[in-house]
């Protein structure tokens, strides 16, 4: 016997976290940060054929301070890496990162002196999107996976603090990205 039985019809119960997560999905704004080839596909994502406006996401925010999604769209050079980190740092919490394309995820075919071998060396990544470049459809899919996943179920309040602390502890004891082995198994 809970409070549910006493409710009149038409009233649903949920958590504050759930409501906020549900609302956040609708106001999910990527920062305008194009790097390379993937950025052109990212533009196509907002253009008529794929039309991110269908679910209200065609607005890319020019200022990172108004954005909560960073799409690392392309190869990250050694020279660009600090800039990306600064853009990420300027974004308000909560924020998410999509690593778009093979170069951003792993360095791709450019395994050389100039390219950071995966943007997860500099920012925490939520979704890795394969492809060179990924089709806009794939970016849409990544976006929805992120929305339905971490965005919708993002903890708030003390839960958030606890989660952040746990994540930080885990990151502190984890080996550096370069030393991680066997993750693909």
């Amino acid at each position: 016997m809970g409070i549910e039985d006493k409710l009149p019809s038409g009233v649903l119960l949920t958590t504050v976290e759930g409501v906020i997560g549900w609302l956040r999905q609708a106001s999910f704004w990527p920062a305008t940060m194009g790097l390379a080839c993937c950025a052109i596909e990212m533009m196509a994502f907002g253009a008529p054929r794929f039309d991110a406006g269908r679910w209200g996401q065609e607005v890319f925010r020019a200022s990172p301070r108004q954005a909560d999604l960073l799409i690392v769209s392309g190869r990250v050079s050694q020279k660009m890496a600090p800039v990306i980190r600064q853009v990420y740092d300027q974004m308000p919490n909560p924020k998410w990162v999509i690593s778009m394309g093979a170069c951003a995820s792993s360095g791709g075919m450019f395994n050389n002196y100039a390219i950071v071998q995966g943007c997860d060396h500099i920012v925490p990544v939520d979704v890795y999107l394969p492809g060179c470049p990924p089709r806009p459809d794939m970016l849409i899919d990544a976006m929805f996976k992120l929305r339905k996943g971490d965005v919708a179920h993002h903890a708030i309040g003390p839960n958030r603090i606890a989660e952040d602390e746990a994540a930080e502890q885990a990151a502190l004891v984890a080996p550096s990205t370069l030393e991680m082995k066997g993750l693909m198994r």
């Binding site: 792993s106 360095g107 395994n111 050389n112 002196y113 100039a114 071998q117 370069l178 082995k181 066997g182 693909m184 198994r185």
Partner: peptide, 18 residues
């Protein structure tokens, strides 16, 4: 000047840089 690549590991196998 070396190419500067890193070995790539995939499912336990390691491929050296080009």
């Amino acid at each position: 000047y070396p190419l500067g690549g890193i070995p790539v590991e995939y499912k336990g196998a390691v491929v050296p840089p080009p």
